[in-house]
Design a protein around this nucleic acid. Sequence first.
DNA 1: TTTAATAGTGTAAAAAAGACAATTAATATT
DNA 2: AATATTAATTGTCTTTTTTACACTATTAAA
Lengths: 236, 236
Amino acid sequence: MKYSNQTRLLVAVDCIIFGFDGTDYKLLLIQRGFAPEKEKWSLMGGFVQPDESLDEAAERILKQLTGLHDVYMEEMQAFSQPDRDPIERVIAVAYVALIDIEKYQTQINDDFHARWYSIKELPNLIFDHKEMVEIALTKLRYKAAFHPILFELLPEKFTLPQLQAMYEGLYDTKIDKRNFTRKVLSTKLLKKENDKDKSSSKKGAFYYSLDEDHYKENFTNIHNFIPRNEIPAGVE
Amino acid sequence: MKYSNQTRLLVAVDCIIFGFDGTDYKLLLIQRGFAPEKEKWSLMGGFVQPDESLDEAAERILKQLTGLHDVYMEEMQAFSQPDRDPIERVIAVAYVALIDIEKYQTQINDDFHARWYSIKELPNLIFDHKEMVEIALTKLRYKAAFHPILFELLPEKFTLPQLQAMYEGLYDTKIDKRNFTRKVLSTKLLKKENDKDKSSSKKGAFYYSLDEDHYKENFTNIHNFIPRNEIPAGVE
DNA sequence: TTTAATAGTGTAAAAAAGACAATTAATATT
DNA sequence: AATATTAATTGTCTTTTTTACACTATTAAA
């Protein structure tokens, strides 16, 4: 038994994969291997298979490209203009993933010709992928102002200056060191390590890591990592 | 030309339509007119047609049921478990709408047997609609704590006690009158009218209305309508 | 030992949020 | 006409949070 007289459509998942290299935010793009728009840059995506949910499809696709699983990823928004794909109508559900760029491994066979692009120097993207990325960035700025999600971009151990650079990079702003440190430490999300990162200063900066228990417990609390006037308007 | 060897699916939109009657939050439900689950209560939904986006489908469906257009509505989340509909796989994108309950008109022919149910006394719903409603409520509580969206539930003119009751209802909490009034008026979103609503007190309460210009300009600002500890954790 | 470069830290003022209760306005009652 | 009743309206003080602002500490390199 089926529903009759209804049109069935292709449904795809597109993954917006962000990384941070210490200075710039990066987007992981692939060079599309098939028509249309062959060899143009694109988000990694794929069609939803009959036996999988959208979340599962997104995980499969992310794994395929990065080799990673258990990654922070969430549904962002559906893109459904009937003509967004010139070949055939495809409804795309965009997912946003935040990964530690160092954990990304080029796959044994780099089928996808993937590359990290700085979000400041993105190439032309196929279809409506550019719009997807812009919306994702705006939503990321909004959400990261209140929730400690950007830690997903960092390695296990990181320094306070690195952390601050990450926030400053996302909002393209300078934040007062003392105020930032105080706010971040007051969340109790961080554990101070005993060793220092001396790669970027003579004095060296102490490493911190996430206090996993506190992190899980307090993840959904409302925090306040950046000055109010930097929070982007116009978002949920 | 088509993408080959891919499965095409039904895509539907389901509308979670909230109202507020001065005391309780209400959900507009229909009695499903066709199998499966005929005559069971359900969200209003419909399949996406070949020529329309999801947003357009949601608007069409909302208009069909309520006669209303230009209503506050936004995409919430996709529901995509392969077996969520026993007849055939359907991916549903849930939309949340907030309407002024007084504007809702029963359609000329009430094809859908629609009824407002208090969210405290919901009947059993088909498929995963119950889950959709619960998620929608949690997200509404989150969003309404920061953005002035609940005004969409009120008529053009409303009193401060009514407004406060609406917030108290959503969070199931009591809020201090003086603090609430101060916060709400400090947003500059409201205009005081000259007349009073005397239906619920001898003294009467002054009407207020939205200052439309300020409302549009400041809509996306971050406000703070309810005490911090009432904001639900576990949401975006 | 001096220099250079970045890390680390404290305090005071301003703004926002929270706790708290008496007065006012209008109608209903006597 | 006076009084009782009911809900609306209004202000202050305290606490918390946020912001603005600048010097000292550390250590490798010169």
